[in-house]
Amino acid sequence: MAERNIAISGAGRIEGGRYGTVKIAGSGKVAGDLEAEEFRSSGSAKVEGDLKAGRFESAGSFRCEGSAEIGEGEAAGSFRVKGLVRTQELKLAGSAAAQGIRGGYLRATGSLAVAENVEVERFWMTGVFGIGGLLSADRVEVELEGPSRAREIGGEKISVRASPRGLGSFFIFALRLVFDKEPVQKLVVDTVEGDEVELEATEARLVRGGKVKVGLGCRIGRVEYSESLEVAPGAKVEEEVKG
């Protein structure tokens, strides 16, 4: 049986529950847990409980007070989830925050703040991020645009690059306004572990891997590698151990 659809245009508030499509244009609030095949919002949306959506689209501001389970989703603007985000595929552009993220594919552009772990199959980030716990993916690809940090990064292939400057990204612009200087493209992390690790502009206590490349702007306390190690001129590695 098809679930009923609901639309808010202007300002409105709906009760939680199960729906087919939920569409919000303007400002909408959902009281309680929401389950929808499709959730679409432009403007400002707030779910005051858990969200479960097969398909998710948000432009503007989205807030969820509980946890969010999203099949496939895209958010542009501000995306804030108090609890855990589970997803098969999620694309975030703008400013995003969550307690933790788990799932398949995560693409983020802009800024990402996660209190605990990000554990996905593929993580592709352009911008700045702060991850309080572990960032883990089969493939971790980061293009740094400003100061970022994580406690640990682990996976199969890990690549961190300093994004070329002067591309006029909004975040660089914003950081310039706030700090009145060029943002420092630097990742600070305690430990990086991967089978193939390529780093730029990274400050780490420990890097472990099979094939390790330490590039421009890196300062690494100790590198433990099993196959190969390349250190770019100007990069600093205090201790190298093969084995």
Partner: peptide
């Protein structure tokens, strides 16, 4: 085992 395997199995 590799790091990739360890982290995948954890996930």
């Amino acid at each position: 085992i590799s790091y990739g395997q360890l982290y995948r199995w954890k996930r």
